[in-house]
Computed example of a mutant assay.
Amino acid sequence: MSLAAPSLANDLPTIRAAVLKIGTVNWELATITENGLDRANGFVLEVQPFADNSGTRIAVEGGQADMAVADWIWVARQRAAGKDYVFIPYSKAVGGVVIPASSSAETLADLAGGKIGIAGGPLDKSWLILRAYAQQKYDMDLKSETEQVYGAPPLIFKSTMGEEYAGSINFWHFLAKNKAAGMRQLISVEEAGQALGLDTNTPLLGYYMKESFLADHPGLEQSFFEASRAAKDKLAGSEDAWVSIRPRMNAATDAQYDQLRADWIAGIPDRAPVDEAAADKMLSLMSDLGGPELVGGATSIPAGLFADVK
Rank of each mutant, 00 (worst) to 15 (best):
M1D: 09
S2K: 04
S2T: 05
L3R: 10
N10V: 14
K21P: 01
T24H: 15
N26V: 06
T31D: 02
T31R: 02
T33N: 08
N35H: 08
D38E: 04
A40N: 15
N41E: 02
N41D: 02
G42T: 01
F43I: 06
E46C: 08
A51S: 14
D52S: 10
N53V: 14
T56Y: 08
Q64V: 08
A65M: 05
A68P: 01
V75T: 06
R79N: 10
V86R: 00
V86D: 01
Y90T: 02
S91N: 09
K92F: 08
G96I: 03
P100G: 01
A101Q: 07
A105G: 14
A112E: 05
G114K: 14
G114A: 11
I116C: 06
L123Q: 08
A132N: 06
Y133M: 07
G151M: 15
L155C: 04
K158M: 11
G162K: 14
E164M: 11
G167Q: 03
S168T: 05
I169K: 01
H173S: 11
H173D: 09
H173M: 14
A181Q: 08
I187C: 04
Q194A: 15
L204D: 05
M209V: 03
H217D: 13
L220I: 13
Q222Y: 03
S228L: 15
A231K: 06
D233C: 07
K234W: 03
A236W: 04
G237F: 04
A241T: 01
I245F: 15
P247S: 09
A255D: 15
Q256V: 05
Q259F: 10
Q259T: 15
L260V: 05
D263K: 15
G267A: 06
P269R: 12
D270Q: 07
A272H: 03
P273M: 04
D275T: 11
A279C: 05
M286A: 11
S287F: 02
G290Q: 09
G290L: 09
G291W: 13
P292L: 12
E293P: 00
V295F: 03
G296P: 06
F306N: 01
D308F: 03
K310S: 10
K310G: 08
